[in-house]
Design a protein around this nucleic acid. Sequence first.
DNA 1: GTGAAAGCGCTAACAG
DNA 2: CTGTTAGCGCTTTCAC
Lengths: 327, 327
Amino acid sequence: MTHAKGGRSVAVTIADVARTAGVSASTASRAFNHPQRLRAETVARVKAAAEDLGFRHNRHAKALSTGRSSALGLIVPDLSNPFFPPLVHATQLNAEEQGYSLYILSSEHNANREQQLARLVSHDVAGLILASPRMSAAQVRVIARDVPTILINAQVKGVPTVLVSADGAIADAVEDGAAKGISGVTYIGSDERWWPNTEREESARSAAERHGVPYRRLSLPEPTYDAAREVVSTVETRSHELVVAFDDIVAHGVLDGLGARGYRPPRDFRILGCDDALPINTNPALSTVHLDTRMAARIAVDMLLGEGADEPQTVVVSGTYRPGATI
Amino acid sequence: MTHAKGGRSVAVTIADVARTAGVSASTASRAFNHPQRLRAETVARVKAAAEDLGFRHNRHAKALSTGRSSALGLIVPDLSNPFFPPLVHATQLNAEEQGYSLYILSSEHNANREQQLARLVSHDVAGLILASPRMSAAQVRVIARDVPTILINAQVKGVPTVLVSADGAIADAVEDGAAKGISGVTYIGSDERWWPNTEREESARSAAERHGVPYRRLSLPEPTYDAAREVVSTVETRSHELVVAFDDIVAHGVLDGLGARGYRPPRDFRILGCDDALPINTNPALSTVHLDTRMAARIAVDMLLGEGADEPQTVVVSGTYRPGATI
DNA sequence: GTGAAAGCGCTAACAG
DNA sequence: CTGTTAGCGCTTTCAC
């Protein structure tokens, strides 16, 4: 290997590989892209040479030449929310497996920034995954026209979607609660029209209705621990109700806020979290909904890279109720 | 805008821009890359044309042509640890500001996978940031020879480094504790030779020594909530000691584990966390060390993109002691 | 089954 | 100040 100024090693090109293998550049290229069209012996010789020289395809040249990128994009609203890291990691693994790398972008829950990021990468990636996007349907459509796009936890007509649904699990939890005698259901989350929030709220509401118990909603300015704790420290409390929290963090806030007032689950109230991904446990152990984000990621990547992108479909990955000691 | 099959819009090239602006491709190119060398009027005309057509540079063509990528890489051991998302986000912002996008890779604390990821992207990025790497110094050097590399929270001779240090803050915390009368210092973390762990342990140890109180270390198989909780639920306890935890999560585990045995801070023991980044608060509020990862990210990106890469330097970003109610 | 040649979109000498 | 030309590394017709 020769060296350039700065002591940094210089790239090995496919021409170098071709030369040492004693073939032309096109043949060397074919050894990687269309090995069937070559004699097995030739393929082996080229690959051996490549190995020897430490050859690696220049991603940019390849993309320029083929018109296809070997990168995917993933936009999430917030890396700090424990829901996303496993999703991100799983996406990365699946992408890698198929020979793609991944641009991970974080929008910080800002719809405009999200769209801006999406536009920024849309021309440089083979496909884009929008996880729990903040964009409007119209904004999503603009992006989807530019680049193959998969939605996770959002619904836009004409764009393929993976839904990580808590619906059935929340129903199960409410049923469990009802069997133990609850006086009502309270959903606590933000009042944003954001799919994860609206789906969970709607699940809680309809489950309450089904069991004939009163339903109410507590709105948080933001679905954070502090906001939740704050709200329940002042709100009028109804005994023996089931609190369905937007996620485990909010549930944690509720637990601590109510705990400070002397209320303990399941004695005084019952509570359900969601996401099952906190680095910290509660006491008593929180009943929650386990969401299989890894599966969702796998499906999303497969849909993106698969053929069936023509007829946009919706796949629902159902979460499961994980009873703890709070229901 | 014309359309290709599949209804996806077709790319606008710089040649298109040049044509509508009535200039040559090179002039159009210069309007973006060397505007000083052009008449202001020309620059304006080209930019207007570009705007009109919705032109965006083809990243791959540009990279191929210049030999420089406009992407940076960032490898972290674990997105799920609350320490990293702010670091990642800040890196992204700074990279973006300078016109770079960011490949974020997660190694899941696996040294080999980490190196593999680093090699994978090393040829496709303008620079690489390794945050709290698991790789050996030798492995880091291999990468650093291939691509400009900055280390965060690791030290390898010859490679520029940003250290997010808890040292002074831990000293301050121990001093605070000592003023209130502690019987000793216990560091609780893993026993890995990983910079963040060894730095904090060493700080705790030397601070204890300085104050003439006994020191000991509790080793966790992994620095998790459960492991910490488990260990302190069985270990012999010494009253009125100061527990220095590897991070807030471990501190949380200690708090809950000791709490279950009826011990409360600061009455029975004192405790310090680290990272100041949990989505959840403790009760009483945890004393912790605030680490300015955003600043670290900014410096890392600047070092990577700046000129001074010739003389590798080490920059230390010192954390600050954030007294809560547990010391 | 393999080679020669052209071209992806852009930038960078080199002329003028 | 601006246009012409060549070429980045790779894939891909099109010949043989």
